[in-house]
């Protein structure tokens, strides 16, 4: 179809002059003048010191939070509310504990948006997709288990499969591996890269882990706090086929150091070595 070609020229997510002010006893500028484009089939990671508004930005894209100025479009449509085109994966507590693994993955099938004009072929394809996702996530033996029987890593795999189930145009991930141990996280990294290549997804991924951000992202967007804003956008020079030992290469480590240093600068929290010396001297 020609129309889809035209649409694909437009970035998947287009953010212009976006701002967010939390009104309260005192006004907090969470985000100020944010410009960002995310292309189709791009993997963008957001990092920054705490309070930089990276999660807020993600939630605004997801329609879970409102921006107070500027504009944001996803798939060419202005974002005003959450929608099936932008599925979100959370850090934890998002699975439905009363549903087993396969029913959690299939949850979106129960929603009206996915039940319109259903032919039996559609239903069959969907159940095939649910099984395929189950296998992809290495959960085929866990199909009937309930979330509270799963490890943290397995729970996040179910959450990712559930989000992927309706083939969202954009996958939003809010520190999805933040609560996992280091070994599990590495496994998840390779899994999500595999999913990204396989599903041709567009992913926006928030993390506080710079290594994770570089390993996964094609671009790393560094936000700075007070007020939250985009500081630097780093283009990651590695291809789509990434292996764990990439993390030990010179290029990777240099980039990690550079980004970490910049985060430290923007956070305004410098370690006072002089003070530390004084403390340990006494």
């Amino acid at each position: 179809m020609d129309a889809s070609k035209v649409v694909s020229m437009v970035p998947r997510i287009r953010i212009r002059g976006l701002g967010k002010i939390f009104e309260g006893t005192q006004q907090v500028v969470a985000l100020q003048n944010v410009d960002l484009d995310v292309q189709e089939n791009e993997f963008v990671t957001l990092v920054g010191a705490s309070g930089c508004g990276k999660s807020t930005l993600l939630r605004i894209i997801g329609g879970l939070e409102y921006h107070t100025s500027g504009e944001i479009h996803a798939g060419g449509r202005p974002v005003t509310a959450p929608g099936a085109d932008r599925a979100m994966v959370f850090q934890h507590y998002s699975l439905y504990p009363w549903l087993n693994v396969i029913d959690n993955i299939r949850f979106s099938r129960r929603l009206r948006v996915n039940r319109e004009d259903l032919t039996s072929a559609d239903v069959e394809r969907a159940s095939g997709r649910a099984d395929a996702l189950l296998n992809l996530m290495g959960l085929s033996s866990m199909s009937g288990a309930y979330p509270n029987q799963l490890s943290g890593g397995m729970q996040q795999r179910v959450a990712i499969a559930r989000a992927l189930m309706p083939k969202p145009e954009i996958l939003l991930m809010d520190e999805p591996f933040g609560a996992l141990d280091a070994q599990t996280r590495e496994v998840m990294h390779d899994l999500i890269l595999h999913v990204f290549n396989l599903e041709k997804a567009t992913i926006v991924f928030v993390t506080h882990d710079v290594e994770e951000a570089i390993y996964l992202g094609q671009r790393v967007v560094l936000l700075a706090p007070r007020p939250g804003r985009i500081d630097t956008i780093y283009k990651v020079p590695f291809g789509t086929d990434r292996q764990q030992d990439l993390k030990h290469t010179r290029e990777f480590l240099d980039m990690k150091r550079e980004i970490l240093e910049r985060i430290r600068e923007t956070s305004g929290m410098k370690t006072d070595t002089h003070l530390l010396d004084k403390m340990s001297a006494t």
Partner: peptide
Amino acid sequence: AQIEAAQTLGATRSEVIQLV
């Protein structure tokens, strides 16, 4: 997170109430 996960899968208000 349970509510918001449903919303980002396209659940309407009444679906969030009934299904979550």
